[in-house]
């Protein structure tokens, strides 16, 4: 699965960067979302993808029986998903406010401090 994921992640990154290079600020935000998802997947997939072995300790045991998926990248990605959501909601509201004041969706029209 990992090689396929490598290609998928590459496409996600490319899409994210393409969107971040747009002049529309909404597209920039979409690019940011794509980027955070792509990065999360990258961390998750690079650690090795295991089918049907969640990192859980069965009741009554002190350690899982046999190999389980690596829990550490999962914990990191979990944190990252939540933070990405925080950043996104902030960015979205910021875009909204900027539009209300500047009445422009074009980054090139937001270069100066004069509104």
């Amino acid at each position: 699965m990992e090689p396929l994921m490598a290609i998928t992640i590459g496409v996600l990154f490319a899409a994210a960067i393409y969107m971040m290079l747009r002049r529309s600020i909404v597209k920039l935000v979409i690019g940011l979302m794509l980027l955070s998802n792509a990065a999360n997947l990258l961390i998750f997939a690079t650690a090795g993808m295991v089918r049907g072995a969640p990192p859980l300790v069965p009741q009554g045991l002190t350690a899982p029986e046999g190999a389980v998926a690596d829990p550490l990248p999962q914990a990191l990605v979990l944190t990252a998903i939540v933070i990405a959501f925080g950043v996104l909601s902030f960015a979205v509201v910021l875009v909204r406010r900027a539009w209300e004041i500047v009445r422009a969706d074009d980054l090139d029209k937001m270069k100066d401090t004069d509104t």
Binding site: M5, G10, A14, I17, Y18, L42
Partner: peptide, 17 residues
């Protein structure tokens, strides 16, 4: 922009491989 995006995406794929 497409070229830059594809270059970077391709690099990420290769790095991961």
């Amino acid at each position: 922009d497409l070229a830059v995006a594809n270059l970077t995406g391709g690099l990420i794929t290769l790095l991961m491989l």
